[in-house]
Write a protein that binds this DNA or RNA. Structure first.
Length: 291
DNA sequence: CGATTCCCCTGATAGC
DNA sequence: TGCTATCAGGGGAATC
């Protein structure tokens, strides 16, 4: 699923390809993805506008348009943006290049939303589960909406200090995994990287945040940065649905230590990796070396 | 206010 | 073989 590193990879890839491009058309087959405005209104308003900027906030993709408009895309579980050319066959959008991952990898074949650009290329949203969220409005309105303004600090930014992390840990009686995934406290970390961060830090995901010692908090803090940076460098994890905008997989899969590895041996201590449900999410960890 | 449950959706998988 | 039940999972809403 797209978390901070995957969204960052997507934004970096698209930056020099779509900035300056005018949107010349729009197509969709799942109106429910478009939360605001109505799909008809969106089509009427977005066509003709030019893309001026693209950035990431937490797990959200922000595509800025001229006349102070902003398109927000949250990919949720299985959504990912793709860049290429598609053609409609029997009501379904199919990629034109038959030997590209856009065509060969089935995860890229669930196209539900398409923007046509002036350069002849398209920006498409593939989303198997149809959970993604699309919002289009005036820039100020989107930036001041709950979708964005409730987000906590970016974990790789200066604002995310050790003192801040210590403070939120001490104040929370929740499991540390739940805290790491709380977008209001830290933005961008999801199920994959919370598991991986805690494995690297040798801390059990079940530990209550306010039970952590100062030294442990510091290690987790450091591992947040290390793991996210490594994942960005490797262009994300494609173990499930995520793909880069060219349809190819990220390289982070083979560096994962615990996520989706229930029953396998811990690469550090040979303990058996366990899966438990925390706050409705599956958590993977090694009970032998994560305390 | 915080904690819990439900819901959105559909492919994969297990059970029969 | 093929049908049905169950599950994953980010985040928001409803409920306790």
């Amino acid at each position: 699923m797209p978390e901070l590193p995957e969204v960052e990879t997507t934004v970096r890839y698209l930056k020099d390809k779509i900035i300056g491009q005018k949107i010349v058309g729009l197509d969709f087959d799942t109106p429910n993805l478009i939360k605001k405005p109505s799909p008809e209104e969106l089509k009427r308003q977005i066509v003709g506008k030019k893309i001026t900027k693209i950035e990431r906030k937490g797990k959200n993709i922000l595509i800025y348009l001229n006349q102070d408009y902003l398109l927000l895309i949250h990919q949720k579980l299985t959504g990912h943006l793709l860049y290429g050319k598609w053609q409609k066959e029997k009501g379904k959008w199919l990629p034109q290049e038959k030997n590209s991952p856009l065509f060969l990898d089935r995860q890229n074949r669930f196209i539900h939303f398409l923007l046509f650009l002036a350069n002849g290329k398209m920006l498409a949203l593939s989303d198997l589960r149809k959970f993604a969220k699309i919002i289009f409005a005036k820039k100020e309105e989107v930036l001041n909406s709950d979708d964005l303004k409730t987000l906590g600090p970016e974990p790789l930014s200066k604002e995310f200090t050790l003192a801040y992390f210590q403070k939120i840990c001490q104040k929370s009686n929740k499991p540390i995994k739940t805290l790491l995934m709380d977008q209001k406290l830290i933005s961008g970390i999801g199920n994959i990287y919370s598991d991986e961060i805690l494995w690297q830090a040798k801390i059990s995901p079940l530990r209550k945040a306010n039970s952590l010692k100062e030294k442990e908090i510091k290690v987790i803090y450091q591992k947040i940065k290390v793991v996210l940076k490594e994942a960005i460098k490797l262009q994300g994890t494609s173990i499930v649905d995520y793909r880069k905008p060219d349809g190819a997989k990220g390289e982070m899969d083979k560096f994962l230590k615990v996520y989706r590895k229930e029953g396998q041996k811990c690469p550090r201590c040979q303990g058996i990796i366990k899966r438990v449900v925390i706050n409705g999410r599956s958590a993977h960890f090694c009970p032998k070396c994560q305390k």
